[in-house]
Design a binder for these strands. Sequence first.
DNA 1: CTGAGATCCTGTCTGC
DNA 2: TGCAGACAGGATCTCA
Length: 274
Amino acid sequence: MPELPEVETIMSLVKRRLTNKKVIKCKVLNSKLRWPIETRKFKVLENRTIKSVKRRGKYILIEFELDKVILIIHLGMTGVISFANNHVYKRHKHDHFLLFFNDFIFVFNDIRKFGSIHITKDISNMFLIKNLGVEPLSKKFDENYLLQLSKNRLCSIKEFIMNQKIVVGIGNIYATEALFLSKIHPKMKAKYLTLSKAKSLVSNIKDVLVQAIDMGGTTIKDYVNADGKPGYFTQKLNIYQKKTCPIHKNNTVKNIKISGRSSFFCNLCQREEL
DNA sequence: CTGAGATCCTGTCTGC
DNA sequence: TGCAGACAGGATCTCA
């Protein structure tokens, strides 16, 4: 499900809610997620206070005081975080993980179990984190960076910008939208990226992500933030799951599969398939 | 180091 | 109404 804007939105709400709060109890209801939850490790969270909440790529990082213990959460496709009132909480299907606080419960729910929860004391060496690429909204992500890494890549440009080892946080929706805005065919080989296309792509990726964050993300099917609210960037989508091109209004949007994912594009706007 | 393809899991929608 | 098959905001692993 969530890409950078959705994770950022959720992270902000979690941050507001959990900073300086002490975990009373931690409960694993189901450890069988994408990576098994190592239940025994989680005892150390009890009676500890949360110092800060951050985001790295599509991961939410919850940092505790002392010992640099960090709780890492990935939402996969269908992960949802919510807060339940202590007295009202009733276990829902697919609730997997709970953190009890004085006056509420932090709930992690995930229908498809593609999400995961980890705990680490050494974030920079954590296997899921250590090989992540640059943050797309940082200065490091520019046309030179993209051009440099794409030089000899035979994979499509869409796969390339969705590759979390290159740049983090971009998933199917925002990759699709940014490529449309830059008039690049999603199947074009990454190695054929030019300086001007790279410039345009970087700038459109940043724009799309910033706008989407401002609007609380994109809700396609069932995404909601930690307050149960949808994202409103859905209204701004140009091409993702659209029938016709917003520019060539009579032209049907093409939908092809690129490494198993739906890829929407306008064959008149995005011509150069090489 | 690349890239293609299978795989994890559940729910919903479409078409016969 | 039933049922099979496709599809869904992701990312890793295996193998060539």
